[in-house]
Nucleic acid binder design. Structure first.
Lengths: 102, 102
DNA sequence: TAATTATATGAACATATGCTCATATAAGAT
DNA sequence: ATCTTATATGAGCATATGTTCATATAATTA
């Protein structure tokens, strides 16, 4: 292939893609996202089910919120989080599937 | 959903998935992998096309080799690298597509 | 053989990351 | 109003990460 025929990715695309995958590069965030893909959860619930500190969970949810992978709503004094990008979640599930049935 | 009904991921699955996505979490590796998905390349060629040092490219290729995302063969005194996991590359391309056509 | 070209790799360094700890904010309960 | 429960967040710290620099290894050429 001649050099001028390479399809190179734009800087913006590369940044976007790496941002999404960076979210999936941490075991903790994978577990949180997979849990949220099954049900809407409060911070405490995530914290208990995944056996993590409240602070660690909240920090990670803040991270996932910033890149719009999760959304949240208040219910009483609890915050309910859920997934907010079905296409990206589908990528995660494909990878899980691939890993479990190689 | 009752707590005992959660489908939790095994530690092994979480580790595998995060390992794959970690490879995609760095802009440099995304560019390398996308280039290799289009053509078999020598280290020097990658280095020139992506405007990176030979050493940086070689280190990253070594990384990608270790997790079996790329394979390589010798040709003279050059090493030719190419992608070695079509399913994983498909995940990358889906993410690129999603990012370019939101 | 000596020089050149291509690649690999260890060490060092700057930056990024994920957690804990302490504390702040906010809503419900008493 | 006060206390409790739930969540958010800044600071600090230990570890991980990606690059450069120098050098080693390997095949080709003169």
């Amino acid at each position: 292939m001649r050099e001028e025929e390479h399809r190179l990715l734009s800087a913006g695309t590369v940044e976007n893609v790496s941002l999404i995958f960076k979210a999936f590069s941490d075991p903790t965030r994978i577990r949180i996202l997979y849990l949220l893909s099954q049900e809407e959860c409060s911070v405490n619930h995530v914290s208990e089910v995944l056996d993590m500190s409240q602070s660690a969970v909240s920090h990670q949810l803040s991270y996932l919120r910033n890149i719009r992978l999760v959304k949240y709503k208040r219910e009483g004094n609890a915050m309910l989080y859920s997934c907010d990008d079905s296409h990206v979640i589908s990528l995660l599930k494909q990878a899980i599937d691939h890993s479990e049935h190689p």
